[in-house]
Amino acid sequence: MNDGTIALITGANKGLGRAAARRLAGRGMTVLIGSRDRARGAEAAEALGADGGDLRAVALDVTDAATIEAVAGEIGERFGRLDVLVNNAGVSGFPGRTSPGTADLELVRRVFETNVLGVIAVTDAMLPLLSRSPAARVVNVSSGVGSLTFMTDPGHYMSRLPGHVAYPPSKAALNALTVQYARDLRERGILVNACTPGPCATDFTRHLGLALTRSADDGAAIVERLATLGADGPTGGFFDDEGAVPW
């Protein structure tokens, strides 16, 4: 996929989404930068477009059905189809308030509303447009903490992380969701995969207080790879830079 390919990335005005937008635009795609704040999305599109790419901002809140439908309508009118959907928008939910035994249930609901239900809402709204593409690709941005294997393997550092009932379970749910969409959409030629970008130094991870050296651009490489899979590529999988990630 390159020239003429239409891609939509949610939560793309900064961090990993922005890096993915830059990478896909660099391949000649028209990239729609989804952002809750259209002005911030426009700033990102203008900055990234300085390198010559075709990037456009759309106001999109994955928890707001009206904005989702509006964007789907806009894409349909302008382009008639959608070739790549990257479900990147996500929230962490302030880990200190989601510990087992003391979790703020309203906060947990908000995390699932964005990280899981938001993906369903956006994907379902875009499916008619994706179905018009000759080779549609859906990439769900997950996390290594969504791997039950990693979180229960005594030899893996993730098994030693504090317990949280919002973000990790939401990403495990997203992984399961990926499998369900992949099963149903395979016959339409739509490939659906999840990825973990790894621990990148972005605003999303700033609160962790970790000395991270991996950049957002590093993390976006796997998004780019899955967004540009050939017809013989995998579907219903979970991947990082090194290949398949265990569930």
Rank of each mutant, 00 (worst) to 15 (best):
V111I: 10
A21P: 00
V71S: 04
G155T: 06
P154V: 08
T123P: 04
V111E: 06
P154F: 10
V58S: 06
G236M: 08
L208V: 02
A65T: 02
V58C: 08
D217M: 05
D3L: 12
E77Q: 14
L130N: 06
R183P: 03
D83G: 12
L226R: 04
R23N: 01
V141L: 08
P246T: 03
D61W: 06
D218A: 11
N13W: 05
D51N: 13
E113D: 15
R109G: 05
G118W: 02
G93L: 08
G101Q: 02
A227T: 11
P162R: 07
G118A: 08
S131K: 15
N87P: 12
T149S: 12
G90F: 03
F239D: 04
A19E: 06
L32A: 00
N115W: 05
D61E: 14
A45W: 13
A173C: 00
A65K: 04
R40F: 01
T235E: 04
N115K: 01
L208T: 14
G144F: 07
G101V: 00
T196D: 14
Y181M: 06
S147I: 00
R214C: 02
N87T: 09
R18M: 06
E77Y: 05
V145N: 09
G209H: 11
L210D: 02
T196F: 03
V145Q: 02
R132K: 15
I222D: 03
D54E: 14
A42T: 14
P246L: 09
Y181K: 06
V139L: 09
G15Y: 13
A89R: 07
E113V: 07
L229Y: 08
P134A: 09
G237Q: 07
A25E: 02
S143E: 05
A244E: 15
G209L: 02
V165E: 00
D203V: 07
G101S: 09
T10F: 03
T30R: 15
G90K: 04
P168E: 05
M29E: 02
L148Q: 05
D3W: 03
R206I: 01
R18L: 12
R206S: 12
A220E: 05
D54V: 11
T228R: 01
L129C: 08
E224M: 01
E69D: 15
R18Y: 13
F150T: 04
A221E: 15
G93E: 11
P100S: 08
R206D: 05
I68A: 08
A44V: 05
Y181C: 03
G11F: 02
S99P: 00
T98A: 07
D54R: 14
T149M: 10
G4L: 04
A50F: 07
P95N: 03
A227D: 07
G15L: 10
I33A: 00
A39G: 04
S99E: 14
G189L: 03
E224H: 06
E113L: 10
T202S: 08
R110D: 12
G237P: 11
A220V: 10
A59T: 03
G53F: 01
G52H: 08
